[in-house]
Amino acid sequence: MSVTEKDVRYVANLARLSVSDDEVKFYADNLSRIVALVEQMNDAQTDNVEPLSHPQDAPLRLREDRVTEVDQRDDFQKVAPAASDGLYLVPKVIE
C-alpha cells in the first residue's frame, strides 16, 4: 500500500510537523518505499502469536511511595526558551 499525500499531511499534523507542498510529495514517496519494505512482514504467519512489546519477561518493578526529589526549578529553567516567575511560557492556549 502506498502512502498518499493526504496521509502525509495527516501524520505530519498529528506529529506537529509542518511540511511544505514539495515536502509532502517527497515524504509520500519516501514513506511509501518504507511501507513496501515493512509490508514484507505479511510473509510471516502470525495467527495465534501473542504480541511482544518488551524484550524481557520481567514484571514491572514498583517503588516505595516516598518523596525523594528536591526543588531544582531554577536549574531546570535555565535552559527554558521562555519562563517567568517560575512558569514556562507558551503562546496563549485557547480551550
Binding site: V90, K92, V93
Partner: peptide
C-alpha cells in the same frame, strides 16, 4: 491564563 495577555503560564 490570569495575569497574561498573549501568553499562558505552565505549572
Amino acid at each position: 491564563h490570569e495575569g497574561f495577555v498573549d501568553e499562558t503560564g505552565i505549572d
